[in-house]
Amino acid sequence: MNIAFFLIPKNEVAYIKYESTMRQALEKMEYHRYTAVPLIDCDGRYVGTLTEGDLLWKIKNTPNFNFESTRKIWLNEVPLHKKNQAISINSEIEDIILKSIEQNFVPVVDDDNTFIGIIRRREIIDFCAKRIFASP
């Protein structure tokens, strides 16, 4: 089974442009109540996943930090502590199960590494549960 069946398309996903400020990221994450969001560059390519932890570490490690600083800190200055790899839209379900163990969602890209959406862990678990508990 191809993973496209599980895809939540980009136009339905909250993501952050890599060329944004820390303040913009905080506001979007707060609005959506997300703890992690995909980062997309100006060409639409997946760059990585920004987490609350990344933002907290940046705050902790920035001398004289105050909330106003968030308007001046660009996301390319925020180190990403987890390297969440995207998966190709041509991948099979088996390829994504292992990735979903470590991530709440798995970013999906096309052949040009353009971000096209995500697959949430919830849908993967649901798929696996139906397979395991299906009546023979």
Score class of each variant (00 low, 15 high):
residue 135 S to C: 07
residue 60 K to H: 11
residue 109 V to I: 09
residue 34 Y to S: 09
residue 19 E to M: 09
residue 30 E to A: 10
residue 125 I to M: 12
residue 89 I to P: 00
residue 72 K to S: 11
residue 81 H to N: 06
residue 90 N to I: 05
residue 22 M to Q: 09
residue 9 P to C: 11
residue 47 V to D: 00
residue 114 T to N: 12
residue 88 S to V: 08
residue 95 D to P: 09
residue 54 D to N: 05
residue 91 S to T: 02
residue 24 Q to N: 12
residue 91 S to Y: 12
residue 29 M to H: 03
residue 12 E to A: 13
residue 90 N to K: 13
residue 99 K to N: 09
residue 99 K to G: 03
residue 122 R to H: 14
residue 87 I to N: 04
residue 27 E to A: 11
residue 67 F to H: 13
residue 78 V to M: 01
residue 84 N to H: 05
residue 47 V to F: 01
residue 133 F to D: 01
residue 37 V to H: 00
residue 55 L to M: 13
residue 72 K to G: 03
residue 131 R to N: 15
residue 102 E to H: 13
residue 27 E to G: 06
residue 72 K to A: 10
residue 60 K to P: 04
residue 73 I to G: 09
residue 26 L to M: 14
residue 100 S to I: 10
residue 94 E to H: 12
residue 35 T to K: 15
residue 112 D to R: 10
residue 91 S to G: 09
residue 85 Q to S: 11
residue 31 Y to C: 06
residue 36 A to N: 07
residue 82 K to R: 09
residue 118 I to N: 02
residue 29 M to I: 07
residue 77 E to V: 07
residue 110 D to E: 07
residue 108 V to G: 01
residue 93 I to S: 05
residue 73 I to W: 09
residue 10 K to L: 05
residue 2 N to D: 12
residue 82 K to F: 02
residue 124 I to Q: 07
residue 31 Y to A: 12
residue 105 F to A: 05
residue 28 K to C: 03
residue 30 E to G: 04
residue 10 K to N: 04
residue 58 K to D: 00
residue 71 R to M: 09
residue 21 T to K: 12
residue 77 E to S: 07
residue 78 V to T: 01
residue 55 L to Q: 10
residue 51 T to N: 02
residue 23 R to S: 11
residue 4 A to V: 15
residue 124 I to W: 05
residue 128 C to D: 11
residue 121 R to N: 11
residue 21 T to W: 07
residue 17 K to I: 00
residue 12 E to K: 15
residue 7 L to V: 11
residue 40 I to Q: 00
residue 48 G to E: 00
residue 120 R to S: 12
residue 124 I to T: 08
residue 54 D to E: 04
residue 40 I to G: 00
residue 56 L to E: 05
residue 28 K to D: 00
residue 127 F to Y: 15
residue 109 V to P: 00
residue 53 G to C: 09
residue 108 V to T: 08
residue 112 D to H: 10
residue 39 L to T: 00
residue 25 A to Q: 06
residue 7 L to R: 10
residue 116 I to W: 04
residue 77 E to D: 07
residue 22 M to R: 12
residue 136 P to D: 10
residue 9 P to V: 02
residue 2 N to F: 13
residue 4 A to M: 13
residue 41 D to M: 07
residue 67 F to R: 14
residue 126 D to E: 14
residue 133 F to L: 14
residue 128 C to S: 13
residue 12 E to N: 15
residue 119 I to A: 02
residue 110 D to Y: 01
residue 93 I to L: 13
residue 14 A to R: 11
residue 63 P to Q: 09
residue 29 M to P: 01
residue 69 S to D: 08
residue 25 A to R: 08
residue 33 R to P: 07
residue 51 T to C: 03
residue 111 D to W: 06
